[in-house]
């Protein structure tokens, strides 16, 4: 394609087909994720590059709060009564992890600058760990 063609041609029929395909893929992926997966078996809190700080919780902690020493400093992970969790406090510069708010299982939440990862553990994960 010549430079001049792109200067003139903004949207083509093929672009429309591409958008339609992406919409279908997007809907399929969102639908797949909305199906409840395996039973929640607990939470794994880890710090990137520091395997010794890895923490497994079977249930929500009694106080509802866990302090994790990350790369930049301490992050505080908070749970509510419904089992949802969030990063309540973090020393990262942009605080995007805090702005993510409450997260419902099964996915997780992570603070990239501080290296803190909180993820939900399903039953499949444990089977993999025990049988392989």
């Amino acid at each position: 394609m010549e430079e001049g063609d792109l200067g003139r041609r903004f949207f083509t029929f093929a672009d429309g087909i591409l958008i339609a395909i992406l919409v279908v893929i997007g809907i399929a992926l969102c639908f797949r994720e909305s199906i409840p997966s395996e039973k929640l078996n607990g939470y794994r809190i880890s710090v990137v590059g520091h395997p010794e700080r890895e923490l497994f919780l079977i249930n929500r902690p009694p106080s509802g709060l866990v302090s994790v020493a990350g790369i930049l400093g301490n992050s505080i992970v908070e749970w509510d009564a419904q089992g949802r969790f969030r990063i309540a406090s973090s020393p990262c510069p942009n605080k995007l992890c805090i702005q993510m708010g409450w997260v419902s299982p099964p996915p997780g939440v992570c603070c990239i600058p501080n290296g803190v990862v909180v993820e939900c553990q399903g039953s499949d994960w444990y089977f993999d760990g025990e049988t392989k």
């Binding site: 083509t12 093929a14 672009d15 591409l18 990137v48 996915p107 997780g108 992570c110 990239i112």
Partner: peptide
């Protein structure tokens, strides 16, 4: 057209960012 090329770029950008986060945070992070 330019729209399709740009949309494919945006998809690749997002896929690469998710992939990098996945590698960085460990393969188990969903």
């Amino acid at each position: 057209g330019l729209a399709g090329i740009s949309i494919l770029g945006a998809v690749a950008n997002n896929l690469a960012q998710l992939g990098t986060v996945s590698i960085w945070a460990g393969s188990l992070f969903p």
